[in-house]
């Protein structure tokens, strides 16, 4: 347990010492979301329709940014070897690393999302559902993305490969997250979609760390 906390603290500290990298992800998220009105025109009705979808696509792309480097530094300097040898099971260590990654890259997105929602003229209820969906969905994005990151560890083309492998698998999260906001806006209630997202979150939380650890073993054999 203390090892787990130590990994978490270590990762958070490392990331905090390189704050600008964190700001980059957030900046990318906001910029991508702001491009759509420029391309599609600023008709308020149109913006309200596409708002949730745009924020979700931007979140999907933004979470991809840091992924290729997720295990790379640890792989290069041998930390990954140490983690594999440590008494702590590798899936747990992976989970601690991912928790830190999620806290530092995805939570800021969730906090910035309401502002983007306001820019797109979403109602208060819709913004609430958007944030709730992002809080449930971004951990899944991190977990699925980490599988791709682990499989492409140390490859020259990993920057391009991760999105190609990971994005098709992330489609359900996108559909459920954007669908929840739309269902809320149309008066159907977001409950079923959010429940599905929560179910997906639980399934991936249980299954993905072992898959990631297995992928890391394949890649660093």
């Amino acid at each position: 347990m203390s090892t787990l906390a130590a990994i978490l603290r270590f990762e958070l500290l490392l990331a905090w010492r390189r704050r600008s990298a964190l700001a980059t992800t957030l900046g990318f998220f906001v910029i991508v979301a702001s491009l759509f009105p420029l391309a599609l025109g600023a008709d308020p009705k149109l913006l309200r329709l596409i708002g949730a979808g745009v924020v979700w696509v931007a979140a999907l792309l933004a979470t991809l940014l840091g992924l290729a480097r997720l295990f790379a530094a640890d792989h290069e300097d041998g930390t990954l070897e140490q983690l594999r040898l440590a008494p702590l099971p590798l899936p747990l260590a992976v989970m601690a690393k991912l928790a830190a990654h999620w806290l530092l890259t995805a939570v800021p997105l969730c906090l910035a999302a309401p502002i983007l929602g306001l820019q797109y003229g979403l109602s208060q209820g819709a913004i609430g559902v958007l944030v709730a969906g992002l809080l449930l969905g971004t951990p899944v994005l991190c977990l699925v993305g980490a599988v791709g990151a682990a499989l492409t560890l140390g490859l020259r083309a990993s920057g391009v490969l991760v999105p190609v492998i990971v994005l098709p698998l992330e489609v359900p999260v996108l559909i459920m997250g954007a669908g929840a906001v739309e269902a809320q806006a149309s008066g159907l209630g977001a409950g079923p979609w959010l429940s599905l997202l929560a179910a997906l979150f639980i399934v991936f939380l249980v299954a993905a760390p072992s898959v990631i650890a297995f992928a890391l073993r394949i890649s660093s054999e």
């Binding site: 599988v147 098709p168 698998l169 359900p172 559909i175 898959v211």
Partner: peptide, 16 residues
């Protein structure tokens, strides 16, 4: 591994 993860995901993708 990627083929297996994909195969497990196919039903999720289809229904979503």
């Amino acid at each position: 591994l990627v083929a297996l993860v994909g195969a497990v995901n196919v039903p999720i993708i289809y229904f979503s």
